[in-house]
Simulated assay, not measured.
Amino acid sequence: MRATPSLLALGALLLAAGCGGGEAQDPPAATAEAEPTEYVFAPGDRITVELTMYDGEDGRRTPFFSGYRPSIEFGHGGPAVECGAHLPVDLREFPPGETHTIVLECGSEVAVPVDDPGFALVEDGVERGTGEVVPTGEE
């Protein structure tokens, strides 16, 4: 049987498009996403944390309320960032000596190492509490 010009053109087109019977090619290998080394929060992002406030001589003597704006040192000793504290609806005040999950909103970008998500809450240059960032899957 004799090939017609249209069949030859079709064959050439298939070869040019990579569909022409040559060796099969493997699909591109899936690239694994690298695990993040830090959580990065933009100014105003909501950061869920578990915070323990000290009591006694090293701690606060009075509770704080939503809107409190302490300095937070992420990474224990990192640069201090002013953050607003927001208490959950069912927690009217945060008394010294207690631990609660709250939300912080910081005025500057914050980078928190995944392997050391801790922070210190500082007032007037004195550490008054400590805590950890709680990953929420939104980082």
Rank of each mutant, 00 (worst) to 15 (best):
I72W: 00
T62E: 13
E127K: 01
V103W: 09
C83E: 01
G67D: 08
V81Q: 00
E105D: 09
E139K: 02
G131K: 10
P43V: 00
R46H: 14
V122G: 12
L87T: 00
V89I: 09
V40I: 12
A24I: 13
A34G: 06
D26C: 10
R60Y: 11
E82W: 01
L7E: 05
F119K: 08
G137R: 05
E105Y: 02
L8H: 08
E35A: 14
A111C: 12
F41L: 06
E105P: 07
V112R: 03
E50M: 04
Y68C: 02
G21E: 13
A111K: 14
G59C: 05
F41C: 06
E38G: 00
P135Y: 02
D116A: 13
I102R: 04
A111P: 12
T99Q: 04
R69D: 03
T4H: 10
P95N: 02
M1I: 03
A24V: 14
E35C: 03
A42M: 10
A29Y: 02
R46Y: 11
E82A: 05
A111S: 15
L7G: 05
E57T: 09
L10K: 13
R46D: 15
H86I: 08
G84A: 15
L13D: 14
V122C: 14
P28G: 13
E50K: 06
R2C: 13
F41R: 07
A85R: 07
A85F: 07
L121N: 05
E132N: 14
T99F: 01
L10N: 14
A85N: 08
G11W: 04
E50L: 07
L87E: 01
C83S: 01
A120E: 14
M1E: 02
F74A: 10
A12Y: 09
L104S: 08
R92D: 14
P95V: 03
E123S: 13
G75H: 01
P63M: 02
E38C: 03
E138N: 11
A42T: 08
E82F: 03
A3N: 09
G107V: 00
L15S: 15
I47H: 03
E105V: 08
D124P: 10
P96Y: 01
A32C: 13
G18K: 06
G107D: 05
F74G: 09
E82C: 03
E132P: 09
Q25M: 11
G137I: 04
L91K: 01
Y39D: 10
P63E: 01
A120P: 12
D26W: 13
G75L: 01
D26Y: 12
G107I: 01
E35Q: 12
T136E: 12
V134C: 05
F41G: 09
A34D: 08
L104I: 05
E132F: 14
G77K: 04
T101L: 06
E50G: 07
A16D: 10
T101Y: 09
P95Y: 05
P5L: 08
E109G: 15
V89Y: 10
L10A: 15
E109T: 15
E123H: 11
T31R: 13
L104E: 07
G129I: 02
G20C: 05
P36Y: 07
F65D: 02
T101R: 15
D58K: 08
R92E: 10
R61S: 10
A85S: 07
E105N: 06
V134Q: 00
P135M: 00
V81F: 04
L7P: 00
T136C: 11
T136R: 11
E23H: 13
E73R: 11
